[in-house]
């Protein structure tokens, strides 16, 4: 009973491996590189011909003239080679302390701002690479960024809204602001 199954086992494994493990990924790669070269390669963003990041991967910003992204649990922050979430449970003492510290840091950078801090700005993303913040988190930072750059709040808001993506078909997902794109835009913004 067993012996006559040995040849089919070996041959079918070999053939299915070639089909699903070699031909399939190679064909998908070929088609993707032809149809969607930029996306398949990582949606890179170039400035002056040099790659400065990916539209899909966040970067750490902590200077006042830039829009800040979410806290990142990777080491160092926004490490695109080793993604990770914090995995803190909701009651972990270190977690609650890190959230409180983050609130303090945000308040210290903009002492006049008395609004409540939007939650996504003080909690680490699942990937540690989240390129987005919510609109609430972006608007919260407008006064600080505007002051640090000597720009009007309106100019900063325009940069934010230009790089905001709504829900898919107005229903699916959540609206997002791409932090890196806003900051690249701000670096070129005039008074």
């Amino acid at each position: 009973m067993m012996r006559e199954q040995i040849r089919p086992t070996l041959v079918s494994f070999l053939l299915l491996s070639v089909i699903t493990g070699v031909v399939y990924p190679l064909v998908v790669t070929g088609v993707s590189q032809t149809l969607f070269k930029n996306q398949a390669g990582g949606s890179l963003i170039f400035r002056d011909g040099k790659p400065v990041g990916s539209a899909l991967i966040g970067q750490l910003f902590d200077q006042p003239q830039y829009l800040w992204g979410r806290p990142s649990a990777t080491s160092p922050a926004y490490n695109g080679a080793a993604s990770s979430g914090s995995n803190f449970g909701p009651l972990h003492a270190d977690f609650l302390k890190s959230v409180a510290d983050r609130v303090q840091t945000l308040k210290a950078a903009d002492p006049g701002n008395t609004a409540l801090v939007p939650v996504d700005l003080v909690t680490a993303s699942g990937s540690g690479l989240d390129p987005h913040i919510s609109l609430a988190a972006a608007y919260y930072q407008v006064p600080r960024v505007a002051r640090a750059r000597g720009l009007s709040g309106e100019t900063v808001k325009r940069a934010i809204e230009k790089n905001t993506q709504g829900r898919f078909l107005g229903i699916i997902g959540e609206p997002t602001v791409n932090v890196l794109k806003v900051n690249l835009e701000l670096d070129t913004a005039k008074q």
């Binding site: 914090s86 939650v119 909690t123 680490a124 997902g173 959540e174």
Partner: peptide, 10 residues
């Protein structure tokens, strides 16, 4: 509760 969640998924 946004800890460990991505903004685009909410």
């Amino acid at each position: 509760n946004m800890e460990g969640k991505e903004v685009r998924f909410g």
